[in-house]
Design a protein around this nucleic acid. Sequence first.
RNA 1: CGGGGCGUGGCGCAGUUUGGUAGCGCACCUGGUUUGGGACCAGGGGGCCGCAGGUUCGAAUCCUGUCGCCCCGACCA
Length: 481
Amino acid sequence: MSFLAQEKKMVEEITPMGEDFAQWYTDIIKKAQLCDYSGVRGCMVIQPYGYAIWENIQKGLDARFKATGVENVYMPMFIPESLLQKEKDHVEGFAPEVAWVTHGGAEKLQERLCVRPTSETLFCEHYAGAVRSYRDLPKLYNQWCSVVRWEKTTRPFLRSMEFLWQEGHTAHATAEEAQERTIKMLNVYADFCEQELAIPVIKGQKTEKEKFAGAHETYTIESMMHDGKALQSGTSHNFGDGFAQAFGIQYLSDNNTLEYVHQTSWGMSTRIIGAIIMVHGDDAGLKLPPRIAPIQAVIVPVAQHKEGVLERAGQLKDQLSKKFRIKLDDSDKSPGWKYSEYEMRGVPVRIEIGPKDIENNQAVLVSRVDRSKTFVSLDNIEEELETMLVKIQAQMLEAAGQNREEKTSVAKTYDEFKQIVEEKGGFVKAMWCGDEECEMKIKEDTTATSRCIPFDQEEIADTCICCGKPATKMVYWGKAY
RNA sequence: CGGGGCGUGGCGCAGUUUGGUAGCGCACCUGGUUUGGGACCAGGGGGCCGCAGGUUCGAAUCCUGUCGCCCCGACCA
């Protein structure tokens, strides 16, 4: 069988990316058993393999949060309507997509309860009661929970009506402290994405038009998917004292003056799993970064019916499991089936061990990144596996970065801009005057939106790409999920 | 909310135009042979054809309604 024919056969059940990216995405999710559709519109069943990825994301993020002094709490899932109404911009932003509870059993409720779409109002209410003195500050709370937004159209992980996330909510004595926290958390997200998920991100600020309902400033990390669409992968908001004024969160300062607190909030959701799929996956299936892969290496015994093979494979599993997340597949499927199966599910390393290997005191390590095979001695397989996992993690970050570079363009004229958005896609760097009208016109003309005003500014031109007036900012533009 | 597609064993589909014994592939079960890139042979189990009405001697197929799902746009993590 030729190599090409072999390639074709291995991927026959997954639609190639180049043919239909959306279908490829759906195929991967189903085939790798990350999640399943449920009887409730827009809500998904997260299956063990998908949930295990989320658990690893939680572990990584939670440790980083706690290292900055954050504590975990849990807030109610219901918000009384009157409470949601307190901050005007906030309620306007979320009202169209909240689910309402109107009855308890057969009794109609006196006041409707909204199922939280986000919990700013609950944290604010709590802080209003809990904060009296500057000595009570800062409050650095986070919660892991699910929220509900009545979305019109949904896609697994990228947009579901109920999704899992964490939302951090902090209250500070000063504006400076709040700003510092906002940026600190943005950096936590960026570091997490690059180090754990091997996804390079662009850090920047959202425009007025794109910022969070009720925020003074919204910061974002933006990543680039394989199809050239952008995905907002995490956000961090500075609320200033807007919510504090609406909810009356005040404290006595150390010179006995009554002051409003300054707040932040920041979140990352299961949507990031969609990013992992779309940044790293290929036509053979999912490709998981070793640091969050539920299975870091799968042991596939070859000719497992032969004397001693399963025993040796079992020993190897016990040995490696002390340090790595290992699965031994001793099912009676053929080895070839297992190879394809675990490639499709994105397991970073496959370890083959058969009679010939045992005779030579060796095993074969196969990388998911390039299918390269390395024969290693069983005496130092732990070190070899460690080395390979570290290498794969680095290769994946590198590849994702290259993809982003290839899909990032610079536009100096509006014609050029429109052509790039339409034909090539990806990020387009272009200058902007700061006027919301230009932003809206660009969206209307091209469906591309401003992704962010990056912290790393470049001087591409001195006039706005759209209206030609003097430019104030360089902006990343692009179509987004 | 607009535009398109689709509901038939667990999954993917054919059958619907032209009404007449519900089929195929994969998966599953049993036995045997296999096992270094999705093995093979033989046998076997499983379906109110999304749901509700109607037309008809007879409906997966025709009519009416309804529910749900997917994709593409507008709005959002």
